[in-house]
Amino acid sequence: MPPPYPPNVITANALINGDVVYQTRDDQWSETLAHAEIITDEAHAQIRLLDAQSQPEKVIGAYLAPIKTTPDGPVTTLFREYFRATGPSNYPHGKQESRHV
């Protein structure tokens, strides 16, 4: 049996404001990682990536990013993805604004 496919999400930057977004199960783009569709099948991942890459009017540079599933939802495993999901550390800007307001 092949090794299980590690969980991934599809992420990109939104066309207008450049914000980090995640593809959801119902073909929307969310600014929140918790809303992302968690993909655990390689063939499905490739199909969903093609879906994402065929929306140049909405997003830029879609790719698969590995995550870990936890009882609290998906969390990033690469620190670059952590910063993308969180925002900069010097100011409460970007994704932190909506959470702090």
Binding site: L15, N17, G18, V20, P56, E57, R84, G87, K95
Partner: peptide, 28 residues
């Protein structure tokens, strides 16, 4: 033309870079 879909990102990228516009981690 990028926003209305006439230009793809691959077509637009060299044009925006000529005008100092990058896409960074969280924003342009």
């Amino acid at each position: 033309r990028r926003i209305d879909g006439s230009l793809t990102e691959d077509e637009f990228k060299p044009l925006r870079l000529m005008n100092g516009l990058y896409l960074q981690l969280h924003a342009y």
